[in-house]
Design a protein around this nucleic acid. Structure first.
Length: 906
RNA sequence: GGGCGGUUAGCUCAGCGGUUAGAGCGUCCGGUUUACACCCGGAAGGUCGCAGGUUCAAAUCCUGCACUGCCCACCA
């Protein structure tokens, strides 16, 4: 046990040392054959492109707290780490990096590009995992996975082929969200609706063979170039005579029909709508119903295509202006009105997406969603906080097919091969010939899968599926999924669907959705917006343990987390407090050794396991109280963690350690530690060490580094490896010692009362003064038995114990129903402050008593409220009345005194 | 257009049916108590957004309103 210990906690060196040691020793390697109930959790795989941001830090902190807690409780715990290949994100990063080097990725070609990405991944893709090691996360690094590794790719192909064979994956031309910047289709979830104020352009379409014209309104005038009809409601009398006639499409002079369709809203605008089947979801459906041609007027990169005639080549927004200008010139623009509408933007690049009919791969979701709804309904998967259940159900019940193909190069290549005759062969391995016509002229589909496709398989693909592995049998279904609520649909819902479909089991038994971490302005932290904070910088500044503790304390469900330096600072102070409590033990080792106690003795398991109730009676009050509090706190922390109430668990240990262990217990037993009576001193040391060591274990899941370091500095059994493998304090209810808690808090009240008077009198804290305590025999005897501690902690020279009523004369008094404490004062003190205070207190008490009396006088209350509530109220009322009488007498006395002195005249 | 949160001490937030509503920071007063000034002791500070209702009992449950944040949505 080292004697030299720095005065303040300096986390950096300690953290680095333990982080490395834990990995080197493979301390957290899970053994599928180990004993104990299983706790398994897979990480929400971070993107390889990123570095660790505060959101990850929160995820990982909560996961790690629970993993360490379970491990310490004897669970066979697995925390499986890994990363996501992050299709679009990674491709975007690489394209940019290459561009910076003057390389056009398209010219590089697909194969060379992929090679570059892999190379980059090897060099830079490990940032996050390195950072996770630094953070000391208790993952099993031997089981690290990557969504694009050969093993996981195999799972992806297996799933794709099976779904295709069942008809749940299909290919076809449908309306998709097209991002002209990323140049790929994206899913509905990846488009973010943004409210914008724009215009509604009203355009005249002349009806051929008449003098009439119809007016259509549109938010995207350039799409008129792709119109293949205009539509009216079949029962709209205004236009009934026009149905079946043709209109001349302005600018292009194309003749298109006027059709009747129920999807037209007669109330909106003129009741006539232009139909652009290739660029609007409603029009697409209408186009199918009426057999209209689809004219795609766009190119992949958002310019106008050949189909746009004279507008070919124009950028889409330039084309809009030109179209409007030309319509205006031809007098075909009736009016422009203001209009707010929601525009879809690309989640990745924020550019406006274009609805576009395109041939893509889709997954049928309804059949997959049904069982996924059922398992949550039936509680096979518990979602916390509960309000997310409703959100989940809502989305799942209205789920639409998922566009899974992406026009990218980085990702899982779709396992489909096209032959020259247009047949498609879907296979697990590259086929030699077309399954339909036998052609050997095959080309693999160029598209890759949406990143979330492989993420959806994560809980079982990482454990070895599709093989029937030991890991899968032992660790699947996983115990819990912890992630931010913003990927409930993207990821959580899809994992549930895929897990059920392919393993017949839920992927996890519980989902905990935590809040987002926002900055001081309440904005979502984001690197692109420059509003992010670097958690590693904060860790360096305040210590990882302080950061972890802050996040845990703030992880209360419901609200978002707003991080501030002040808050982290207060938990850095907490870490320092723990450090200094340890320091107290270490710097007093000479006193400790003087008692003849050995370190071996302290490390003995029977001392550690000492169950307080066995010792009760033999122990001094302070120790009985402390052990009881320890048990109660352990009980509460365990219960809180069981229910994922991290903030409550953290609060509880914080208050226990600082407010009870340090502020009261250590101060209380200090003299005993140096007592002449060695047996007494030894017992005090033993208990102090035992409580401190237990407190470290209690704290360990929250503050792994600090506790590991201090635990190793304490005497430990030979071969004891890590606090992380030690037992978590249990807090059995049989350890609670209510009598000791009651007595200790009474003594504390007396001490606080004395301190209060001292502060009021502005006494020099070192100056010891005499006081008088009036109380019943029971309390007097309690105080008498603990007189040394009371005198010392209240800085009293003596405490006279008296019975009966306290005479009203002289000194400052603090009273409760149980006792009166009086301290004499010199003549210089001004009593007016005290009088004001007492008056205020008297009013408050009078009001309180009045309301309690009223309650108790209420017959309905007495008959309906539970007995213990009524009795509790009665006894409280009695106490208040006692306090009130004492206070009234004191006040009268003081007022008289002031009045006589003439000081109250003013 | 639907839905979900939030509104509690100067600030950031806990508490979510039962006796005098809590924490951290900040404020004020007093401290070189040999573990800790990242500290110690004491104190001040709140008609729990507003209005109704349910209940013996409401910060806590219900309804409405007002701000405020977010999610979902194919009305041109």
């Amino acid at each position: 046990m080292p004697r030299e210990i720095s005065k303040a906690y300096e986390p950096q060196a300690i953290e680095q040392r333990w982080a490395r040691a834990w990995v080197d020793e493979k301390l957290f390697r899970a053994d599928a054959r180990a004993q104990g109930p299983v706790f398994s959790i897979v990480i929400p795989p971070p993107n390889i492109t990123g570095s660790l941001h505060i959101g990850h830090m929160l995820d990982h902190t909560l996961i790690d707290i629970l993993t360490r807690w379970h491990r310490m409780r004897g669970f066979n715990a697995l925390y499986l780490p890994g990363t996501d290949h992050a299709g679009i994100s990674t491709q975007r990063v690489l394209v940019r990096l290459l561009a910076e080097q003057g390389i056009d990725y398209r010219k590089l070609g697909r194969e060379a590009f992929e090679k570059r990405v892999w190379q980059w991944k090897e060099e830079s893709g490990g940032t996050i995992t390195r950072q996770m090691v630094q953070l000391g996360e208790s993952c099993d690094w031997t089981r690290e996975r990557f969504t694009l590794s050969p093993e996981l790719s195999r799972a992806v192909r297996e799933v794709f082929v099976r779904l295709y064979e069942e008809g749940l994956i299909y290919r076809g031309k449908y309306m998709v969200n097209w991002c002209p910047v990323c140049q790929t289709a994206i899913s509905d979830l990846e488009t973010v609706h943004e409210e914008r104020t724009g215009h509604l352009w009203h355009i005249r379409y002349p009806v051929i063979g008449t003098n009439e014209q119809v007016v259509v309104a549109t938010t995207r005038p350039e799409t008129m170039l792709g119109d293949t009809a205009v539509a009216v409601h079949p029962e709209d009398e205004r236009y009934a005579h026009l149905v079946g006639k043709m209109v001349r499409l302005p600018l292009l002079a194309r003749e298109i029909p006027i059709i009747a369709d129920r999807y037209v809203d007669r109330e909106f605008g003129t009741g006539v709508v232009k139909v652009t089947p290739a660029h609007d979801p409603n029009d697409f459906e209408a186009g199918r119903r009426h057999n209209l041609p689809q004219i795609d007027i766009l190119t992949d990169d958002g310019h106008l295509s050949k189909a746009a005639g004279p507008y070919e080549g124009l950028e889409r927004f330039a084309a809009r202006e030109k179209v409007v200008e030309d319509l205006k010139a031809q007098g075909l623009l009736e009016k422009i009105t203001n209009h707010t509408y929601a525009v879809g933007t690309c989640d990745r690049c924020k550019s406006v997406i274009e609805p576009r009919a395109s041939t893509q791969w889709f997954m049928k979701m309804k059949p997959l969603a049904e069982p996924a709804i059922a398992v949550v309904e039936h509680g096979e998967i518990e979602i916390t906080p509960e309000n997310w259940r409703a959100v989940y159900f809502e989305w799942m019940r209205n789920i639409r097919d998922w566009c899974i193909s992406r026009q990218l190069w980085w990702g899982h290549r779709i396992p489909a091969w096209h032959c020259e005759n247009g047949h498609v062969t879907v296979a697990r391995e590259t086929p030699a010939k077309c399954a339909e016509c036998g052609s050997t002229n095959l080309a693999q589909d160029p598209d890759v899968l949406d990143t979330w496709f492989s993420s959806a398989l994560w809980p079982f693909s990482t454990l070895g599926w599709p093989d029937d592995t030991e890991d899968l049998r032992v660790y699947y279904p996983t115990s819990l999924m912890i992630t931010a609520y913003d990927i409930l649909f993207f990821w959580v819902a899809r994992m549930i669907m895929m897990g059920l479909k392919f393993t017949g089991q839920v992927p996890f038994r519980r989902v905990h959705l935590h809040s987002l971490v926002l900055n001081a302005e309440g904005q979502k932290m984001s690197k692109s917006k420059g509003t992010g904070v670097d958690p590693l910088e904060l860790n360096r500044q305040f210590g990882t343990d302080a950061m972890r503790f802050t996040l845990a304390v703030m992880a209360a469900p419901g609200t978002n987390i707003i991080l501030s330096d002040e808050r982290i600072l207060s938990y850095r102070a907490f870490a320092n407090k723990i450090w200094n409590a340890a320091r107290f033990l270490f710097v007093n080792l000479d006193k400790f050794e003087a008692t003849g106690i050995t370190l071996e003795e302290l490390a003995a398991p029977e001392v550690r396991a000492a169950s307080p109730h066995r010792l009760r009676g033999a122990l001094p009050l302070a120790d009985r109280w402390m052990f009881s509090r320890l048990a109660r706190v352990a009980h509460k922390v365990n219960a809180a963690l069981e229910e994922l109430r991290f903030h409550e668990a953290a609060h509880t240990v914080y208050h226990f350690f600082w407010g009870e262990f340090c502020d009261w217990y250590i101060e209380w037993v200090k003299p005993t530690l140096a007592a002449e009576n060695h047996e007494e001193a030894r017992a005090a040391w033993r208990n102090l060490f035992a409580v401190f060591e237990a407190a470290l274990r209690l704290l360990h899941p929250f503050m792994p580094f600090l506790t590991e370091e201090l635990w190793h500095r304490l005497p430990q059994r030979a071969g004891a490896k890590s606090i992380a493998l030690d037992r978590y304090p249990e807090g059995r209810e049989t350890w609670f010692d209510e009598e000791a808690e009651r007595q200790a808090s009474l003594l504390q009240e007396i001490i606080v009362a004395a301190r209060n008077i001292r502060a009021e009198l502005k006494l020099d804290p070192r100056k010891k003064v005499a006081a008088e305590l009036t109380a019943d025999a029971h309390i007097r005897s309690l105080v008498h038995d603990n007189l040394d501690a009371v005198l010392r902690l209240a800085a009293l020279s003596e405490l006279k114990l008296t019975s009966g009523h306290l005479s009203p004369k002289g000194g400052l008094v603090r009273s409760t129903a149980q006792f009166d404490l009086r301290m004499a004062y010199g003549q210089a003190e001004d009593l007016r402050g005290e009088v004001i205070k007492l008056r205020k207190e008297k009013d408050r008490l009078a009001k309180d008593i009045e309301s309690k009396k009223q309650r108790l006088a209420d017959e309905t209350f007495r008959s309906r409220a539970p007995e213990n509530i009524v009795r509790g109220l009665e006894s409280t009322l009695h106490e208040r009345e006692v306090e009130y009488r004492k206070l009234r007498d004191r006040l009268a006395h003081l007022e008289k005194q002031l009045g006589e002195g003439g000081a109250a005249a003013s």
